[in-house]
């Protein structure tokens, strides 16, 4: 599995990665923020934990800007899943409820906040987003790579 290979790599420092992700998210969701579609994140902390790779952060909206920070105990909703499943969701290859029924993604805390987030993401017209082509290619490339190396990863584990 891709994340097993990644786990063997030296851990990059998280703060610069978070900073870059924050810039990126503010860029692609600029219209949605302006149209108040992300107001449900105001004063609410959404914690993301990605299994298998060193990626975890708190996300909130302050003064019309998405803010990413180091994980804290002060979260309202926590969502946990593998990098692969998050990529499938982002690329619209899997349905969130399907992954939830199959226990591949778990949420804890404020369920309504999770529903807001899920429905916000589902309602996005991906082709309207900045970098949409690049994003789609990147995600599909990563998913394809995972699908290709997963059998190898499994074989190596035996």
């Amino acid at each position: 599995m891709l994340h097993r290979l990644i786990r063997r790599l030296p851990r990059p420092p998280q703060a610069p990665a978070r900073f870059m992700l924050e810039q990126f998210l503010n860029k692609i969701f600029a219209t949605a923020i302006a149209e108040e579609e992300l107001d449900f994140l105001n004063d609410n902390v959404f914690q993301v934990r990605v299994d298998g790779i060193p990626m975890e952060f708190d996300l909130t909206l302050k003064n019309d800007k998405l803010k990413l920070s180091h994980v804290s105990d002060q979260w309202d909703l926590r969502i946990t899943g593998s990098a692969y499943d998050f990529m499938l969701l982002a690329a619209r290859r899997e349905d969130a409820d399907t992954l939830f029924f199959q226990r591949r993604i778990t949420t804890e805390g404020d369920t309504e906040l999770g529903l807001y987030l899920k429905n916000f993401l589902d309602s996005l017209d991906l082709s309207d987003l900045p970098f949409s082509k690049w994003l789609e290619q990147g995600l599909n490339g990563a998913i394809a790579m995972h699908d290709r190396f997963e059998p190898l990863g499994r074989a190596l584990q035996r």
Binding site: R103, T106, T107, E108, G109, T111, E112, G114
Partner: peptide, 27 residues
């Protein structure tokens, strides 16, 4: 079952769903 009344909790006994604090299921 409006989402504002729903809680999912990971517990040592399994994943629990609660509706307005009432335990609905444990997976």
């Amino acid at each position: 079952s409006p989402a504002s009344a729903v809680r999912w909790d990971k517990t040592p006994r399994g994943l629990e769903s609660r509706l307005n604090e009432v335990l609905i299921d444990r997976y």
